[in-house]
Every structure is written in structure tokens, then in C-alpha cells.
Amino acid sequence: MRAVKSPNTRGLLRLVPSRPLPPPPAAPGDVLAEAEAVRVLLGGRPVLDGVDVRVRAGEVLALVGPNGAGKSTLLGALAADVPAAEGVVRVHGRPAGEWSAPELALRRAVLPQSASLSFPFPVAEVVRMGRAPWAGGEREAEDDAAVAEAMARTEVAGFAGRPFSALSGGERARVALARVLAQRAPLLLLDEPTAALDLRHQELVLRLCRERARAGDAVVVVLHDLALAAAYADRVAVLRAGRIAAEGAPAEVFDEDLLSEVYDQPVEVLPHPRTGALLVVPRREV
């Protein structure tokens, strides 16, 4: 709260809510989100069980694993959207529950698996929704530039005036990502951002993740494509049945035996013939 003079009360002071302050710039390696011994129950069933993970500024962390392993639940817990039955989730060093919703909105931006709207908002307005946390603050003046940049980076500026409801699934996914980028929060939490995209735009999204990390943000991305994770992530956490089976750099974690066991599918991990980068492919007898 802060005190201001009211023009209608002869200069008497009145209390008005203070706008939350944005976080200070993070240094490379700062922990912007972490889960410590986190257990999450959904419908009385443990979906995460004793999970520990740290999300650092300047890095892309990929969450991978089979369906039902707990990837999206872990992302939701790190976003402070899914409550933990046990353990603690911290965002910018504080337990998630100690932040207000406006404070969280300045610290983390979340891309859910699917984006839907009840009204036919134009694309540009959907992207501008990402600027809501800054309304009335000093950085509100950045709104137009932030929206324009986000739309250009995700290649959606060409249909800025079209209704969101008229877009294809892949176009909607890119608009939703543009909204997240326009928010300009230092922690990005992206749930399967490449699921509806063609090859070109899958690569575009992961390049944007790398760019945001190089600029100092922390990025967590849920992926099913292990080759994309190997190419773009600094670290990967492999989830299996609500626990982390392995965590580390892709070259350390992407082991044929481990992945074959986790996915219950034989895989091969091979060096790319030109670059030497890791390729993860199913082992096929055809």
C-alpha cells in the first residue's frame, strides 16, 4: 500500500494498492525456480513423488519422458499453478505460495498445452494480453514494442488482424507463444510448444528458447522429441512414473539403455554424420 493525496478530500491521504515490483535482473546460473522433494497428488494418486529439480537463469531445461510420467505436472508445480502435497516449490528464492498472482506474473510466463478463447479476439489483442502484468507500471510504455517484437519473432505478424478462432492449430500455438514472449518474464515455462507445429516452426520455437536463455532467462520446456531436446537443451530431466530417472547434459543422460527402459521401446543414440550432435531414434527392424 502507498499513501497519496486525494483531490476530493482537501489533501487528506488515502491508501491505494502498490503495484508489485518486477524482479531484479538475474545473473547467469541464478536459480529462478526449484522443486525440493515435491510430491503432487491428483485424484488421490501420486503424480510426482519426491522430485528435485532446479531451473537456472541462462539455461534451457527440457523435461522429457513417456506419456503420464509427470512432465506437465512438474511444469505446473514450478509455475505455482499445481499445489504440492509435500515438499516445497520456490520461485525466485521464495516459496511459491508467498507470491501474489500479480507478483508471479512478473516473474514467470506459462504456455499451456492448448490455447483456447471463448471470444474471437484478433491475434494482436491476444498477444497484447501478455502485457497485462505491466499495466499501470513504468514499463507499460514498452507494450507496443514488446507485442510487435513477439509477433515478428514467432512469425504471426502477417495475420495480426485475424480472429484467433479462425487460425489453424499450429498458428494458434505460435500466437500463444508470442503472448508468453510479450510478457517478458525472466522464467518461461512451456508445455509441449512444438506439438502442433511443422518442422520449420519446431526449429523456430527451440531457437527462440535458446535465444531467451542466452539473453539471461531461464526456460523450461516439455518435449516429446528427444532429438530436439538433445540439440537445444543445456540440461534434460528424464521423468518416469513421477520420478526423475536421470538429469544432466543431453550427452550424459541420453543413454541407449536408460531411454530404452524408460520408454519401453528400444532406441538408438547416434552421432550426426556431419555435426556429431546426438540423434535419438527408435530401433526399427525394417
Rank of each mutant, 00 (worst) to 15 (best):
A3E: 15
A3C: 00
K5L: 14
R10E: 15
L12A: 15
L13E: 15
L13Y: 12
L15I: 00
L15R: 13
V16G: 03
L21V: 12
P22L: 02
A27D: 12
P28T: 01
A35L: 10
V38H: 05
G43F: 07
L48G: 02
G50K: 02
A57E: 01
L61I: 04
P66L: 07
G70P: 04
K71R: 06
T73V: 09
T73P: 10
L74I: 09
A77R: 02
L78W: 04
A79Y: 03
V82T: 15
A85M: 07
G93T: 08
A96V: 04
P102C: 10
R107K: 08
A109M: 06
A115T: 13
S116P: 00
P120W: 05
A124R: 15
M129K: 11
M129G: 13
P133A: 05
E138R: 15
R139T: 10
R139F: 12
A146V: 05
A150L: 06
A150H: 07
A152N: 09
R153W: 13
E155Y: 06
E155K: 13
V156C: 15
G161N: 14
R162W: 11
P163R: 12
L167W: 07
S168G: 11
E171A: 08
R174S: 04
V180C: 12
R184E: 15
L190P: 04
D191M: 08
D191R: 08
A196T: 11
L197M: 07
R200Y: 07
E203V: 15
V205Y: 02
V221C: 09
L223Q: 08
L223I: 11
H224F: 10
A229R: 05
A231N: 00
A241V: 00
I244M: 02
E256N: 08
P266A: 11
V269N: 08
G276C: 08
R283Y: 08
R283T: 07
